Simulated assay, not measured.
Amino acid sequence: MGISEAEAAVMEVLWRGAPRSAEEILEAVGADRDWREGTVKSLLNRLLKKKAIRAERDGRRYLYTPLIAREAYVSQESKGLLDRLFDGRVAPLVAHFSEQRKLSRRDIAELKRLIEELDDERG
């Protein structure tokens, strides 16, 4: 679908609670990003064209609701990242992050647990 970083910020607000008006979305993200109402409305229009959200009239305003689940978006973005940068392989991704950022003991323990679970499922 190709959702930009700015559009994803709007989607995050909607995933946390929908339906929401443009004003409510602006209130949730506008100050952090120095956005104005026009910016939010432009992003909402782009998301409507992409069929990522729907708009429902509520008196003089519109209420927006996501049409795609956050999990589906994260899955699509993760797969795209893996395919583009790591030839679809997870191990080089983990190696890259371990080189760039020090993995905590907790991170390592979670990775070990995940590997054990995967190994049990396939064994």
Rank of each mutant, 00 (worst) to 15 (best):
E116F: 05
S104T: 07
S4C: 05
L63P: 04
E117C: 03
G59N: 10
I68M: 08
S98W: 07
R36M: 10
K51G: 06
A22C: 00
D34F: 12
A28D: 00
F97H: 06
E71R: 15
I115V: 13
Q76T: 09
V94N: 03
F97P: 07
H96P: 01
G30F: 12
R70M: 10
K41S: 08
A95T: 08
R46G: 03
M1E: 03
R54F: 11
L81N: 03
D107F: 09
P66I: 01
S42Y: 14
G17V: 08
D119W: 09
I53A: 01
R16W: 12
A95S: 08
L48R: 13
A9K: 14
E12N: 10
Y73P: 02
E23Y: 14
E121A: 15
E37K: 15
E5H: 06
A91C: 06
L67Q: 09
E5T: 01
L82K: 07
L14C: 01
F97V: 08
G59S: 08
G30Y: 11
D83S: 11
L63I: 07
D120V: 12
A31R: 14
R105A: 13
R101G: 05
D58R: 12
E110D: 04
V74K: 11
I68C: 04
E117K: 04
A91W: 07
T39H: 14
R70F: 11
A8E: 00
G59W: 11
G59C: 05
S104L: 02
V10I: 12
E7K: 10
A18F: 13
K41Y: 09
G80M: 12
I3F: 15
V13T: 07
L44N: 03
V10C: 13
K79F: 15
V94W: 03
A91R: 12
E71Y: 02
E77L: 15
R89V: 09
E71V: 09
A72P: 03
R113N: 11
A28T: 00
S75M: 08
D87K: 12
S98I: 00
L14Y: 09
S4Q: 01
A31G: 06
V94F: 06
V40H: 02
E121W: 13
L82C: 05
I25N: 01
T39R: 15
E117G: 03
M1T: 03
R16T: 03
E56Y: 03
D58V: 05
